[in-house]
Design a protein around this nucleic acid. Structure first.
Lengths: 206, 206
DNA sequence: CTGTGTGAAGGCTTTCACAGCC
DNA sequence: GGCTGTGAAAGCCTTCACACAG
């Protein structure tokens, strides 16, 4: 499976298509054209078709795509990507908000543990997962072979915590801290900075 | 001001540079080279220099950039983008989490009002802003000339709420709902889907 | 005739290589 | 010598045009 020749953005869009297909499937829609699917996903039809051909031929010419079968194919492609255990580090303002957020669980990601430097200070109301002291983090990651971490600590602590996560064997980090993390090549990082998203939007306001 | 010829991504990175410069400034660092600044922002030095030249010449050859003066220049470029009033629509799980999150305020964005279809059902503890019924949203947006909205409603309601926001005069939407919003060309949308970010990460895990 | 699959063309960004200035 | 500024080249991704299948 030549993962590496596929554009990152194409993989990202696959997740978009997947979600649209789920909706279509729930609505008992059996087939969909690349035009319709692309519009719902916010991309051009040719791009959708191109993206899909990176992974194979899924459509029927003159007809379109069978929703259920395409969904199954994409599930196959993204199969490793779901139902992964995740830990959360940093249960401050944003961290505890993310803990309460049930959107991850709905999409197949369970936050199985949370860590903070001051666990007693965190707002643990409504949280199903207890917040443990950060000193126990490394051992936990090793013991449970965790690969995925959500990082929501303040900037000053971010790199130090990252180093520990990497040492413990973490392979991917969803980084909410306002710092670019320095990691070895085998570790993947996606950055989310909500304030920058807002700022960026306003730049294009007339 | 030829805003339109500047790549979107370059504008986005400007926000990254801005944040790094703020840190440097706080640490009383007076000058910085493109190499150092680029590394801290997670980009290549040449890219940083190229990005900056879209907006002018800010550096001194042989020396680097003066932190304070570059900061001032970028503030000028991004000036319209800060201290904008924002409203939040949808105070469910994610919405109320975002309300409690103080990261927006820290970066100059104040959420001045929140709306929900069932305001009494929302968890308003710890929230400084009262949650109003969504029926009052349009009037509020018009009256206060709000341009920016954060959308955190369920997928089924997202397009309908968006239509109302657009009618009321909203110009930019930070969309957390799992739907691609159909909007007129003068309205800008940035999509944030935390579950997809996680899913995307895991694709690259070995 | 409808709608997918795909090599080729096009466009946008990034990177390079080096000129220019301190 | 050090480091920025920048036109040119390269690279990547998107879009086109049309072949091909149902």
């Amino acid at each position: 499976m030549p993962k590496l020749v596929i554009p990152r953005k194409a993989v990202y869009r696959l997740s978009l298509y997947y979600r649209v297909l789920e909706r279509l499937n729930q609505n008992r829609i059996e087939t969909v054209s690349s035009d319709a699917l692309a519009k719902a996903a916010g991309v051009k039809p040719t791009q959708l078709r191109k993206d899909l051909t990176y992974f194979g031929q899924f459509g029927t010419r003159g007809l379109g795509y069978k929703v259920e079968s395409l969904l199954a194919k994409l599930t196959g492609v993204l199969r490793t990507t779901r139902f992964q255990p995740v830990i959360l580090v940093g249960a401050g303002n944003l961290g505890s908000a993310l803990l309460r957020y049930d959107g991850f669980a709905k999409e197949g990601f369970e936050i199985i543990a949370a860590f903070d430097s001051r666990p007693e200070g965190a707002k643990t109301d409504n949280c199903k997962v207890p917040i443990q002291p950060v000193e126990q983090m490394k051992e936990f990651v090793r013991e449970h072979s965790i690969k995925l971490a959500i990082l929501a600590v303040p900037g000053v602590a971010a790199q130090e915590v990252t180093n520990q996560l990497v040492e413990a064997g973490i392979q991917a980090i969803l980084n909410f801290s306002p710092l670019i993390l320095q990691v070895p090549p085998h570790v993947v990082v996606n950055n989310v900075n909500l304030a920058i998203e807002l700022e960026n939007l306003t730049y294009f306001i007339t």
